[in-house]
Design a protein around this nucleic acid. Structure first.
Lengths: 137, 137
DNA sequence: TTAACCACTTGCAAAACACAAGCGGCAACA
DNA sequence: TGTTGCCGCTTGTGTTTTGCAAGTGGTTAA
C-alpha cells in the first residue's frame, strides 16, 4: 500500500478498467459464469478476466463455488464486501449520466432511477435485493 | 469508448491509480500547485502527474489558471464536473473504512464523519463548501 | 548575477494489457 | 465408446502504460 488513506485503499483494489464492470454484471445482470462475463459488451480478454476474478476472490469481494448441476461450471457471487460496492457503482453511474458528453444507454435509467429519487433509500432497497440473490448474511 | 454504459463512461475517465487522489487533494487538502500534488504521501511521478492533469483538464474535471502573484505558478481548481465526483470519493472512503483489513488513517474520520451520519446531507453540505472554494457557479 | 524554484519533458526499464491460440476436464450425442 | 463441443482457464507474443531518474527552459528571490 502506498498510504493509509481510506480512499487510496479502495483505489488500489478496484480502480482499474475491469473490476467494477465484473461487479456490475454480478449486481445487475445476473451473470454468474466465466463465459457470461466474457460476453459483456466491453469484451474483456480471457487472461485479464481470470486475473481479476482471482484478485477479487482474494480480496473477498466475490466468492467462488461449484455448480451442483454441471460439475465443470464454476459459480461466482458477491460477498457482503462486494455488495457494499453498490454505492460506489451507483454514484459513478449518476455522475456519468449528469456529465457525459456522449449519448449513454437510456435503458440503465431503470437501475439508476431508484438512486436518483433518493440516494440512501435507493441503496438500501437495492442492497436488500442483492443480499437475497447472493445468499449473504 | 468500449460501451455506452454510464458506469463504463466514468471508469474510462477516472478509474486509474492516480486521478481520484489528485481530486482528493483538491477537495480536502487545499492543494492547488503541481509541486503540492507531487508531495502527497502516495508519491506520484512527475510525468504521470503532468499526464493526469492534462487529461483531467481535457475532460473538464479541473481547470488551469495562472497565479496572479507568481507568474511561473499555475493554479489548478475543480470545475462543477470535478466537484460532482465528491459522492464517488466519499463512498469509496466509506467502503474502505468498513472493510479494510489494515489500519487506516483515523484522521480521515473528520472528512468521512459527515457522510457517515447521512450520505445525502453530508454530500450537500460539503458540496456547497467546495463550490465556494473553487469559485464555481 | 547567480542560485534556487517552477512546471514540466525526455529516456529507459519494468510491468500491465490485449489479442490469439491452445489445453485438460467434463458432457452430450452417435 | 469414440467424437465433438463447451467449460474455465493458461501460455506466448507484441504493444501500451507505468515508474523512476535526470534534465530543461522560464521565473524569482537574494
Amino acid at each position: 500500500m502506498r498510504s493509509d488513506c481510506p480512499l487510496n485503499y479502495g483505489i488500489e483494489i478496484f480502480c482499474d478498467k475491469w473490476s467494477l464492470l465484473i461487479i456490475r454484471d454480478l449486481m445487475f445482470f445476473g451473470k454468474r459464469y466465466f463465459n457470461e462475463f466474457l460476453h459483456s459488451e466491453e469484451h474483456i480478454a480471457t487472461n485479464l478476466l481470470a486475473d481479476r476474478l482471482s484478485m477479487l476472490e482474494k480480496e473477498k469481494i466475490i466468492r467462488k463455488s461449484k455448480d451442483t448441476q454441471h460439475k465443470q461450471k464454476i459459480v461466482y457471487s458477491l460477498t457482503e464486501k462486494g455488495i457494499d460496492l453498490l454505492p460506489v457503482i451507483l454514484t459513478i453511474g449518476l455522475w456519468s449520466e449528469k456529465h457525459a458528453d456522449i449519448k449513454l444507454n437510456p435503458g440503465r435509467d431503470i437501475i439508476l432511477g431508484e438512486a436518483k429519487k433518493g440516494l440512501t433509500r435507493g441503496i438500501d432497497k437495492m442492497r436488500k435485493k442483492l443480499i437475497k440473490e447472493h445468499e449473504v448474511g
